[in-house]
Design a protein around this nucleic acid. Structure first.
Length: 480
RNA sequence: GGUCCCGUGGUCAAGUGGUUAAGACACCGCCCUUUCACGGCGGCUACAGGAGUUCGAAUCUCCUCGGGAUCACCA
């Protein structure tokens, strides 16, 4: 039988990393088994409607290479794929259950329920619906229905016995039916509850493997009761762990860094995010850490999925992103970096050089403006910077170095890397000093900061002859 | 609170009765070096606790503790 999995997000306008990972595993599982990956939009809660939110889902999934085989935009044999367009499918199924005695009409109002719930709480008990309306006579039910009284349809959970299901990861999970509540299937407005809609949708769409968040672990036995009531074949269940912010909290929107978009905006590469997230809660069984989408499909297996939640470590994501950045071609690097050069006020005329010095030290592209901040304007720096033990420099030595460096550079016919390099290093040799002793003061004078991407020579090129000479002289003045 | 799930270093994790308990990130040190970074080498740190079963337990069982989920006419 062909494997069919589904990703069923609510359109909120953002792609939560936890959802992204669930979608990814769901996709990988389908593809690893030669199956189909279906996209279903769960938009029944119109109060949460966000314009354009569905497009965010489409765009994000597509951009990371997760193409669905059936979905709202491309159709398929099991449509419609938007839940709000399926809304009149559910009631008949519920009525079928009522006829079979597996569900029943309930006329208890929300107010009554709330009151009984309060009373139960006062006694320190957990409220459970008492099947009051199950015992209504056929005549009374019909009379109240005819009278147009509002009603819901509830699942009739057996009073005794066991409800259970088998999860690929968690194994056999069983609960006593007496612990289960008669959950509402159809609401007073005629719409299905999420739980019911899910069962119906998954079955009618031929979903063979239901992969979803861990939070459904405790309600799944009830779902299986429904499958049994219908006489349907149950899907295989695979419940997935959440991504955590720390040991006790899920990654949530309140943290401001729970969304895929957050990281894109911070200058992370989408491939790195996907790669990292894939490894949070799954491992390939070998030492590999870097995967393209195709490689993930080949390597993916449920065996590698973790049963315990994983804490999101931005440190490791950043490391992985840096690895991806280094693997870019210089041209690709420049393409990504360009907006950040602009932000820094740095032109792209030395793009090759910039890529050469920046690529090895860029963890996220958002770091670039800070790294280049000294280029548009010389920072106001302290002479203390000319002192460096390892390079064996101090203000006195620096003064001498700058004097001879200015003379030597001034005499250069061309402002190019090789001549500058030869001039400066030649000078160091002639003076009998370490290269560092020669180059430290020059770099400090050129950049006005202690840490720079690239060395004195690269910076001289980036600044150009005129600005470089000016800055060297400013440095000399500071030392006078 | 009831029910269910989870528990190997700071983090991700390998491990399925016999291992010096992998590896990666982070951290620390050294080397390289034109600062930083990259790169190379090395180091630190873990089986939640307790009973059992067994010749032998991170691995099996039970209890305790810790954490999470769920108990809606929300999805």
């Amino acid at each position: 039988m062909e494997v069919r999995t589904r990703f069923a997000p609510s359109p909120t306008g953002y792609m939560h990393l936890g959802n992204l990972r669930s979608a990814l595993y769901t996709y990988l599982f389908a593809k690893a088994n030669g199956g189909k990956f279906i996209l279903r939009i769960e938009d029944t809660d119109q109060s949460r409607y966000v314009p354009g939110a569905v497009d965010v889902i489409y765009r994000t999934l597509k951009s990371i290479g997760m193409q669905w085989d059936e979905g709202p935009d491309i159709g398929g044999d099991y449509g419609p794929y938007v839940q709000s367009e399926r809304k009149n499918m559910y009631l008949p199924y519920a009525e079928q259950l009522v006829k079979a005695g597996k569900a029943y009409y309930c006329f208890c109002t929300e107010e009554e329920l709330a009151e009984r719930r309060e009373q139960a709480a006062a006694r320190g008990e957990t409220f459970k619906y008492d099947k009051h309306c199950l015992h209504l006579s056929q005549e009374e039910i019909q009379r109240r229905l005819d009278a147009g009284e509002p009603y819901v349809i509830r699942q009739n959970v057996p009073e005794h016995g066991e409800a259970s299901f088998d999860d690929v990861l968690y194994g056999h999970i069983a609960v006593d039916c007496s612990d289960l509540d008669d959950m509402i299937l159809i609401k007073a407005d005629g719409m299905p509850t999420y739980n019911f809609a899910n069962v119906i949708d998954d079955h009618t769409m031929g979903i063979t493997h239901v992969m979803r968040g861990n939070e459904y672990l405790s309600s799944t036995p009830k779902y299986n009761l429904l499958y049994d009531a219908f006489g349907w074949e149950k899907p295989t269940y695979i419940h997935m762990t959440p991504i955590m912010r720390d040991a006790t909290h899920k990654l949530s929107k309140r943290d401001g860094d729970a969304y895929f978009e957050d990281y894109i905006n911070k200058g992370y590469l989408k491939e790195a995010i996907v790669n990292y997230v894939a490894l949070l809660g799954w491992n390939p069984g070998d030492e590999r850490e870097f995967f393209t989408m195709d490689e993930l499909i080949k390597a993916f297996s449920v065996d590698g999925m973790s049963k315990s939640p994983a804490i999101f470590d931005v440190n490791k994501l950043t490391w992985m992103n840096a690895e991806y950045v280094r693997r870019l071609t210089p041209e690709q690097f420049t393409e990504y970096a360009l907006p950040y050069y602009k932000k820094a006020g740095v032109g792209a005329e030395h793009a090759d050089l910039l890529a050469r010095i920046l690529q090895q030290r860029t963890e996220t592209f958002a770091q670039i403006p800070d790294m280049l901040d000294f280029i548009p304007q010389l920072p106001d720096y302290d002479v203390e910077l000319f002192t460096n033990k390892k390079s064996k420099t101090n203000p006195e030595i620096a003064k001498h170095v700058l004097e001879i460096a200015i003379a030597a550079l001034d005499a250069l016919p061309a402002w190019e890397e090789q001549p500058i390099h030869d001039a400066l290093l030649g000078l160091a040799e002639k003076e009998g000093m370490k290269n560092g002793t020669m180059l430290w003061p020059v770099r400090i004078a050129l950049a006005g900061k202690q840490v720079t991407p690239g060395g004195a020579i690269e910076i001289a090129i980036l600044l150009g002859r005129e600005e470089s000479m000016r800055r060297l002289k400013v440095g000399l003045e500071k030392l006078a």
